[in-house]
Design a protein around this nucleic acid. Structure first.
Length: 274
DNA sequence: ATAAACGCCTGACGGC
DNA sequence: TGCCGTCAGGCGTTTA
């Protein structure tokens, strides 16, 4: 479950349970989950570090330790849970089929990284900027103004949908919120970024921020078997509504492939030209 | 510079 | 019931 609103929801839900916990050990159950450093260094450095705070940058979850930072990316199917590590008799509770990493705390609790499709990644680093500075602006930051967005759009000659999903261009948008934002702004997914007028750019900027804010307010969207408790899926205007009427004009929502990703749009509201 | 194709993975679903 | 293709909230690498 990972786009900005879902990641933000997870971070908020974990914060109070995790801050102050001291790590006793880290355990990687699917080796490729650990992006960096090597396994030896990872297991050696983690014990004794205490969680200072939790944050988010784009779709990355930041667990600030001292002195390192634990960074988790959920990719397509990741989730996190906090639970007791042992039963009342002190017998360790077994991990589940799709658990790929576990962080055991001195308190006896543990943080488990669930990740059925194994795409998710974990980093332990004393230099998080090296990873995070490559990301584009935070769409909900004050610094991300309509002017900044317009200039960035003008600097590229790319299709809007893949550009908005490019984390180097803008951090946090994924397939759902991109489709929803483009529909709200009445822009075709294949419009070329530097063809937008200043007015269109501002409408898109506003749409991006509104769909993300609404997503956060609704605790994200819950789809498929990975359920988080959010209900933004009830507000979808185009995503996964292929064949249903557009809420604005009644035209049948269509689906096309853009960069190998299912893309949902209204052919009347979102004209390629004009 | 842009974009398309592919690889990485498991599971759910619909059609036959 | 089983098998098969398709699809899935992501992203890095390779190829054109």
């Amino acid at each position: 479950m990972p786009e900005l609103p879902e990641v933000e929801t997870i971070v908020r839900s974990l914060r109070s349970a995790l801050v102050g916990q001291t790590i006793n050990s880290g355990e990687i159950l699917w080796p490729r989950t650990l992006a960096a450093p090597g396994m030896q260094e990872f297991t050696a450095r983690l014990p004794g570090q205490t969680i200072q705070s939790l944050g988010r940058r784009g779709k990355h979850i930041l667990i600030h330790l001292d002195p390192d930072t634990l960074i988790i990316h959920l990719r397509m199917s990741g989730d996190l849970r906090v639970e007791e590590g042992c039963d009342p008799q002190g017998v360790p509770l077994s991990l589940q089929k799709h658990d790929r990493a576990a962080f055991h705390f001195d308190s006896g609790q543990r943080l488990v990284f669930i990740n059925p499709r194994k795409f998710g990644r974990v980093w332990l680093t004393n230099n998080p900027s090296g990873l995070l500075d490559k990301l584009g602006p935070e769409p909900l930051d004050e610094a991300f103004t309509a002017d900044v967005f317009y200039q960035r759009l003008q600097a590229h000659k790319r299709q809007l949908k893949p550009l908005l999903m490019d984390q180097h261009f803008l951090a946090g948008m994924g397939n759902i919120y991109t489709d929803e934002a483009l529909h709200q702004a009445r822009l075709h997914p294949l419009r070329i970024s530097n063809s937008l007028t200043r007015k269109e750019a501002e409408l898109l900027w506003q749409a991006i921020r509104e769909v993300l804010q609404e997503g956060v307010r609704r605790n994200g969207a819950s789809i498929d078997w990975v359920y988080r408790g959010g209900d933004f899926q009830n507000d979808f205007k185009v995503y996964q509504r292929t064949g249903e009427p557009c809420a604005v004009c009644g035209t049948t929502i269509e689906r096309m492939l853009v960069g190998q990703r299912g893309t949902h749009y209204c052919p009347v509201c979102q004209k390629q030209h004009g």
